[in-house]
Nucleic acid binder design. Structure first.
Lengths: 346, 346
DNA sequence: TTGAAAGCGCTAACAA
DNA sequence: TTGTTAGCGCTTTCAA
């Protein structure tokens, strides 16, 4: 039953030519190598006839390249990352590259293992959302001429390109928008990870508050709790400890989601009473009632930018060590949750 | 800068042994092949010392296996699929397999290309959410002894295992639940794809309606429109054409999301006035106000089941042609959206 | 204009 | 108990 797939050699035999000839034709180098038109046609026809598919593993072994790009993120089932993943996947496929997705869960050890693993498989490039402590591995990659592009977070000590959002500006815009709408006790709920983008968002918030002579109020939730029901405790505790708060700025999408859940359980009116906004848009925020104001990342643009850089590196290995920081601008999407409203007694 | 990674041969040279010895030790076959303990130790120490990583591409070429499993779904950025993907990924990694994710977009041609592509890369197994018309390619895979497990939808004409949900039962439960809550003009909004699971859901709905002497009312939305804003038109048209409707059962998660969006735009009160339920749970539905009743698929169980079957096949190629249909049971999650309520005039 | 042959790094049958 | 060696299927240099 198992029909062994024909190899180059088999074809050469049938056609009574050398494997070299077949290989050249296969790779479109027929003309260049001055193989006669008739021969090229004959080989091409036969290849098409038997629907020949070269063994890509063998090719990789020989060429040292696999035409595979790794997209390593925190959690591939996260809306933002999976959307970006889809865009990258599409661009890659049209350029005859494959994309391997994987999740680090912000676990340094796991990320290190994954990088090693993929290096063994000779992947051609890495697009990475770097967890902390991964510098050495990434350094090692570029030393070995394997292109790396950082995404979502940059690491200043490394000579690699990065594509990130202007987090500072976004956070400032959200905060200022809330202030304009009449809120002045704006809380900032974030996670305790030592990540540059989180820090930028915090700074943006602090800047806007300071500029307007308002007193900042920050709740830091441990990362391990961020996705779990446990963060509800922290949030509700915070709310009852700080009754003066009139609005909340959530530093991430999932914090906002958990926050909304918590608040709806605590008190129905809470969500409508507070001004709300968060980072990272999501189909849900548009549908929610009230719809939620967000700062949207330019997903298509980010995916396109990432692949543009990656494909550039892949074609021209000379320019790997460039360290260009591409900082994209997002967009404030004003929705109901942040509109000026009457104060409702809780 | 670029330090070529050492090969088996290099190591054999340094150690003054043969590559065979190194290879056997590397693959833990030292004892089995009766290599002396001292030699094994010496080789192992050196391997560890230089942190040797074998070239997996070469190994694949030689063994014909890549320790890669493909997970091919409709859209990897879909919540349900990406969650399952994460679970599969974890199980695979602990078994020393890698997972390649890709999206077919229900496009037969694209799916065919992808299967070919991965076959060229010698992947070891496929977990596939099959689009229509993919039978031949899958048949071809199993003829070539490459294990395939179907997921979400099964194809009766193929000799492959499948893991699916009891869609019929789920749809019946949802419909009966709505009826119990006092709704009797229940609309069923679905997509026009000729997919077995959609058909089962429809049948479950029809069965429950018939059993209760109620008149069914079905809106079929073209798949191309399902994800776009365009489906809003169809839905709002349907609603105004059928004012007698008191509740809606959405056949999928994304239909419900778009439906909610449409309704909230049409009329604020609509969502609270109608009884609502849908297939596939999602974090949003719990947070939404009102929270949405759903029929949840047992995600962990599905992922585990899929990998159990796949790993079984991978270990024992003899039993590939089994055609076992694993039909898992989901769970009705009753939430606010389907509770009995007063009729609100629209 | 085409072909022979080396070799990418690894595994495993066969020799010794 | 260990080593020699023939490939896996492909690309590419060098030779003809």
């Amino acid at each position: 039953m198992k029909k062994k797939r024909p190899s180059l050699k088999d074809i050469a035999e049938v056609l009574q030519v050398s494997t070299t000839t077949v290989s050249f034709v296969l790779n479109g180098k027929g003309e260049e190598k001055k193989i006669s038109k008739q021969l090229i046609a004959r080989v091409e026809n036969y290849l098409k006839e038997i629907n020949y598919k070269p063994n890509l593993v063998a090719r990789s072994l020989r060429t040292g390249s696999s035409r595979v790009i790794v997209f390593m993120v925190e959690d591939i089932s996260n809306y933002f990352f999976s959307k970006i993943g889809r865009i990258i996947e599409d661009i890659a496929y049209t350029n005859d590259y494959r994309v391997l997705f994987c999740s680090t869960e912000n676990d340094t050890k796991r990320a290190q293992d994954l990088i090693q693993l993929f290096q063994e498989r000779q992947v051609d490039g890495f697009i990475i959302v770097p967890p902390t402590g991964i510098e050495t591995e990434i350094q090692n990659l570029i030393e070995n001429d394997i292109p790396v592009v950082l995404f979502d977070r940059k690491i200043d000590t490394l000579d690699v390109d990065s594509v990130t959002l202007n987090n500072y500006e976004g956070a400032t815009q959200i905060t200022e928008h809330l202030i304009e709408e009449g809120y002045n006790n704006i809380a900032f709920i974030t996670i305790d990870l030592d990540l540059i983008q989180m820090d930028d968002r915090r700074k943006g918030y602090l800047f806007a508050m300071e500029e307007n002579n308002l007193k900042p109020n920050i709740l830091e939730i441990p990362y391990e709790m961020a996705n779990a029901d446990k963060c509800n405790v922290a949030i509700s505790q915070f709310l009852s400890d700080n009754p003066q708060i009139d609005s909340i700025f959530f530093a991430t999408n999932y914090l906002a989601q958990n926050g909304l859940k918590t608040m709806s359980r605590l008190d129905d009116k809470l969500i409508k009473a507070l001004g709300l906004a968060c980072f990272d848009d999501n189909i849900f925020f548009e549908m929610y009632s009230p719809s939620i104001t967000t700062f949207a990342q330019p997903i298509e643009q980010m995916g396109a930018q990432l692949m543009k850089i990656m494909l550039g590196h892949l074609e021209d290995k000379e320019k790997i060590k460039t360290k260009k920081a591409h900082i994209l601008e997002g967009k404030l999407i004003k929705r109901e949750s942040s509109l000026r409203r009457e104060t409702i007694k809780l």
